[in-house]
Write a protein that binds this DNA or RNA. Structure first.
Lengths: 118, 118
DNA sequence: CTTGACCTTAGAGTGCGCTCAAAGGTGTAG
DNA sequence: CTACACCTTTGAGCGCACTCTAAGGTCAAG
């Protein structure tokens, strides 16, 4: 797939895709004319990158995680790295729940009769 | 409290606190000598700002949320704004769970006998 | 009365993650 | 052959959230 096709599918600019490639987050082959040729799986990969980014992970962190997932390191090492990431994600979930609780609390203060949702 | 005390308590720089004040996220009185005098509640407020930031919210978003929480608008308007924010937080939680599921899946592929945690 | 840790301001600089501009090559339709 | 949408590269520019620099004021201890 050409760069414009991926860009339109995922909803990012072609500049962003070239930037991600330069950073090593995605890869491409080349057509004989020099155009990039992306495997269609790249679209899903970029979606995951954008998801992780929106959740507060930096490209450097995402890069590290993806390269671990891509690597052929021993399974127990992979498990260790991913377990750490899962712990981090679980922490973030509970932090978000904290934030939610704080907002609910403020809502109850303002309006004691209402029952908080969540 | 002087700016350095708040900074040390929360673990941010004094520059960051001055920046937040300029942006309107926090307030201070002044001593007669010109030094800022922060109410001690500001420490907790700054902690909440850092928490929200680490979860992917921009200062502009946080500013909007905090000014709503600070305001004396009618309760039903407040409820509406906060409900929207709660919906957003719930979405983020489920996105994080998605990310966690994706990692767990990858872990199972690498190591079929293990049971995923979460 | 000086040293040193704190505070003030204005304004410049930094790193991240894009985003745009310039100058040019490719490919298809009319 | 021309127009036009696509692609290429290099390098500059931008907004965000700080972070640092310069030049100076405050204040308690020795």
């Amino acid at each position: 797939m050409k760069i414009g096709e991926i860009a339109e599918r995922v909803g990012v600019s072609t500049d962003t895709l070239r930037y991600y490639e330069k950073r090593g987050l995605i890869r491409s082959d080349r057509h004989t004319n020099g155009y990039r040729d992306f495997h269609k799986d790249v679209a899903e990969r970029v979606r995951q990158i954008r998801l992780a980014q929106s959740l507060g992970f930096s490209l450097t962190e995402i890069e590290a995680l993806l390269s671990t997932l891509d690597s052929t390191i021993p399974v127990d090492q992979l498990r260790q790295v991913l377990d750490e990431k899962l712990t981090e994600i679980n922490q973030r979930i509970s932090q978000l729940k904290q934030l939610r609780a704080a907002i609910n609390l403020r809502l109850e203060q303002a309006c004691p009769l209402n029952v908080p949702r969540g």
